[in-house]
Computed example of a mutant assay.
Amino acid sequence: MATEHQPDADPGPTDPATLTPRGAARRRFTRAGVAASGVLLTLQSQPGMASEVCTTPSGFLSGGLQSFRGPKPVCGGRNARYWASHSWPTGCSKDALFARVFACNATASKSYGSATQLAIIQGKSWDTNNIGKLLMACYLNVRAGISTFQTVPMLQKIWSEYQNKGYYTPTAGVRWNAAQIANYLQRTME
């Protein structure tokens, strides 16, 4: 692009009296870009206590562009703190093992597999980046019908890939590490 900085290019004259009209145009463009970015940031801001992301992981990669077939998704997910102290959706049990919903491999079964769903929601020191905690909250949101853009199989796929590979692939050629998975999940709830 013409406006990008070229590290090997001659920076040109620095005396304002000798600056070219092209340089002045670039400065005006840059100032306009900075001013416009404030407008864009204002348009993108979300109200407090609202989910920031109401889309699938691959949709999240599309920069929030959303296209829906059928009814608009419900996006009112609650966080783990909420679920730790409130009633759970019908058919969900705080005493059930995490592995009942999210199958655990031999390594994960020593920690996640032997913990109750409530224990995971409350948080465990070995739950790196709170992946289990966030997945459990998302699962409860789906089961409660307050998060319709996610599905139980989608959440199970995220868990399966993460525990078996150490990352999740939301789309071909893209790998999310634990922090990126947690970022996505966290932003789907209040």
Rank of each mutant, 00 (worst) to 15 (best):
R22H: 14
G23K: 13
A24S: 15
A24V: 15
R27E: 14
R28W: 10
F29W: 15
F29I: 15
R31C: 09
R31N: 13
A36H: 14
S37Y: 08
S37A: 12
G38C: 13
V39S: 10
L41I: 07
T42G: 15
Q44E: 12
S45R: 14
P47S: 08
G48D: 01
G48A: 08
M49D: 13
A50I: 04
A50R: 11
A50Y: 09
S51F: 04
C54E: 04
P57I: 06
P57S: 04
S58D: 15
S58R: 13
G59P: 02
G59D: 12
G63D: 11
G63V: 09
L65W: 11
G70F: 03
P71T: 14
K72C: 05
P73Y: 02
P73G: 10
V74P: 02
C75H: 05
G77K: 00
N79S: 14
A80V: 03
R81E: 10
Y82H: 14
W83I: 02
A84P: 05
S85Q: 11
S85E: 09
H86L: 02
S87I: 00
S87R: 10
W88K: 03
P89T: 01
T90C: 02
T90R: 07
G91R: 06
G91T: 03
G91N: 07
C92G: 01
C92Q: 13
S93N: 13
K94R: 15
A96S: 14
L97E: 05
F98N: 09
F98Q: 01
F98E: 04
R100G: 11
F102G: 08
A103V: 11
C104R: 06
A106K: 05
A106V: 11
K110G: 08
Y112A: 13
S114E: 11
A115M: 13
A115I: 07
Q117M: 14
L118M: 13
I121R: 01
I121W: 03
I121G: 01
G123S: 12
K124W: 09
K124M: 09
S125Y: 00
S125P: 05
W126C: 03
W126I: 07
T128P: 05
T128F: 10
N130L: 09
I131N: 03
G132L: 00
G132V: 03
K133L: 13
L135T: 04
M136H: 06
A137M: 02
N141K: 02
N141I: 10
N141F: 05
R143M: 07
A144G: 07
A144E: 14
S147T: 07
T148Q: 06
Q150D: 02
Q150P: 00
T151Q: 08
